[in-house]
């Protein structure tokens, strides 16, 4: 039977002497780590005081949440399953139209924001900052603005999603275009193609699958945001959700939430399939 040789203390001491830097405790690193942690926790404590956290309120609230959880079971449609499904369809339509419109608007603008397509730094800097401004406004705020223009309803929701995603997709599209292989474009230019030819045959075929997969991904996340857009009155299932929570019809709330979860999961599955097909098609 073989035994593992345990090094004797003398050998360990010799090792320590030979490699002092491995065994030396780095006090500086520890102090920095501790200070960072203390700062994080200290700031959190300050935030809790400032935002009026109170243990009694949390405990009382948790008790009430427990009651809610019991009241939510079993999920029950309350004979309104048809209306809920219709609202869910509206939600999906909002997400689909919004994403598509955003993609169609972002596609041409992204060329202007891509450094390798428009070499003028002034143009792409301006376009980028513009996209940043649009992106930093939340979709609910866009919804409020559009409600003032086209009135309450799902149309305002679709426009809000289109606007909010226009900024985000424009940024992602231009980044995808910047990472494209230059060789194809150079080949087109060398054989006498104009700038438009270069874009059409050197850039677009390479980025199209990537853009498609990004659009699908946004569609997924937009089905989530389209469920809440009804909170401000812009159509979809959110309107029901707000109302039902306000009047504490908790069984219907849980039914609706389950419905949303199922729909979102289904959309996720379909679109991740499609995405894989798109990206796989490019690799082959």
């Amino acid at each position: 039977m073989s035994r593992i040789a345990v090094p004797d203390p003398a050998a360990i001491a010799a090792l320590r002497q030979r490699h002092p830097e491995v065994f030396r405790r780095s006090w500086r690193g520890r102090v920095v780590t501790l200070a960072l942690l203390a700062a994080l926790v200290g700031f959190a404590a300050f935030a809790m005081v400032r935002l009026e956290f109170s243990a009694t309120r949390i405990l009382a609230g948790l008790g009430r949440l427990g009651e809610f959880a019991i009241l939510m079971l079993p999920p029950d449609s309350g004979d309104r399953a048809g209306a809920f499904l219709l609202a869910l369809g509206e939600t999906l339509a909002i997400a689909f139209l919004g994403t598509l419109a955003a993609a169609l608007m972002a596609f041409p603008v992204a060329f202007l924001a891509a450094r390798n397509v428009v070499p003028n730094p002034f143009v792409h800097f301006t376009v980028r900052r513009g996209l940043d401004v649009i992106r930093s406004v939340d979709v609910l705020i866009w919804a409020l603005i559009w409600i003032n223009v086209v009135g309450l309803g799902p149309f305002a929701g679709a426009l809000a999603i289109a606007c909010a995603d226009f900024g985000a997709l424009g940024k992602l599209f231009s980044e995808a275009m910047e990472t494209v292989d230059r060789k194809a474009g150079e080949g087109v230019s060398a054989s006498g193609g104009t700038v438009l030819h270069r874009i059409r045959f050197g850039v677009v075929p390479a980025v199209l699958p990537v853009l498609g997969s990004q659009v699908l991904y946004f569609f997924e996340s937009n089905t989530r945001s389209a469920t809440i857009i009804g909170i401000v009155g812009a159509g979809g299932v959110g309107q029901y959700l707000t109302e039902l929570i306000r009047v504490l019809e908790l069984q219907q709330v849980s039914f609706l939430i389950l419905l949303i979860l199922v729909t979102v999961t289904a959309i996720d599955l379909v679109s991740s399939r499609l995405r894989r097909a798109l990206i796989g098609g490019q690799a082959r």
Partner: peptide, 14 residues
Amino acid sequence: TVPEIVFALLFVIA
């Protein structure tokens, strides 16, 4: 999957 604002709606009541 449940949007944060839905949690907020429930929690505001609780």
